[in-house]
Design a protein around this nucleic acid. Structure first.
Lengths: 150, 150
DNA sequence: CGTGAAACTTGATGCTT
DNA sequence: AAGCATCAAGTTTCACG
């Protein structure tokens, strides 16, 4: 990816609804040129999509937790993705090194919602044990930025 | 927030560049009605913005990790926020229940970058011990988060 | 890869119900 | 609050350098 694309991505990270014209004016390109670059980046998977950034509180999600999961036998990442992807409260999943097999980030409306999510995760079958850490206060949550400037 | 707004938000979470007309067709509203609702939600902060979803690899972030930190004595959240906020690789911090005091989410260009981040976190003074889990593969990452939580 | 122009689609806004 | 009409603005395709 060249520097021009990095600048375009930087702008789209800050405003995903910026017009191609605006972006073009900012980076010194015409709108069609910007569109072609963005289309290419989407086709290559560098940009996987666009989304609204929503205040979790507005959705009624007042509590969040990290749930480490320990599985029996082998866990296929694809399987985990399929099983957990269907739970809307699950906002993040990653397989990790260390004693746990994966870490799951969930949001919920109440402690009961967290418990329910844990139950659903456990009931997927392969999960042997979970360890839940409820978030007391979120201190930092930044969007990921391009390395070396935007 | 009523049910109609929730449906609109749901569509915008899946496609942040959907047109008002498309959304309107899906929820049974005219395009201007959708726009007015979206404008209101933005004004109220329920939707804090729109962003491109970018592959971290394309941005030069090849590795990520979760670092649990264990502090000696009392940790003030404000202090943690101040200390860790200065590390650009730190994209998320939350104090949690359980044995660890906080969990820190870091992105880096290489394993050396992770190590460096851990070192910087340790050197903030109050941190006694850390436990790092390197992400092997990220399966889900949904951008349901407010912007600028730093 | 880039530009500029043309046809089409959306966005934004005032007015009416 | 929603719909409709309207004009400005952005998108998209294409021929071309």
């Amino acid at each position: 990816m060249d520097d021009l694309n990095r600048r375009i991505v930087g702008l789209l990270l800050r405003d995903g609804r910026a017009t191609f014209q605006e972006i073009g004016a900012a980076v010194g390109l015409s709108a069609p040129a910007v569109k072609r670059r963005v289309d290419l980046m989407r086709a290559r998977g560098e940009i996987s999509g666009f989304a609204a950034i929503v205040d979790p509180h507005a959705l009624g999600w007042d509590i969040e937790a990290y749930i480490e999961i320990f599985c029996r036998g082998n866990v296929s990442p694809a399987e985990l993705q399929r099983e957990l992807g269907g739970i809307p409260e699950v906002v993040g999943v990653a397989t990790i090194t260390g004693d746990a097999d994966a870490i799951v980030h969930v949001m919920a409306a109440s402690m009961a919602g967290i418990e329910e999510s844990v139950e659903r995760i456990r009931s997927t079958g392969r999960v042997e044990r979970t360890r839940t850490s409820v978030v007391m206060s979120r201190l930092i949550d930044r969007p990921v930025r391009p390395r070396g400037g935007a």
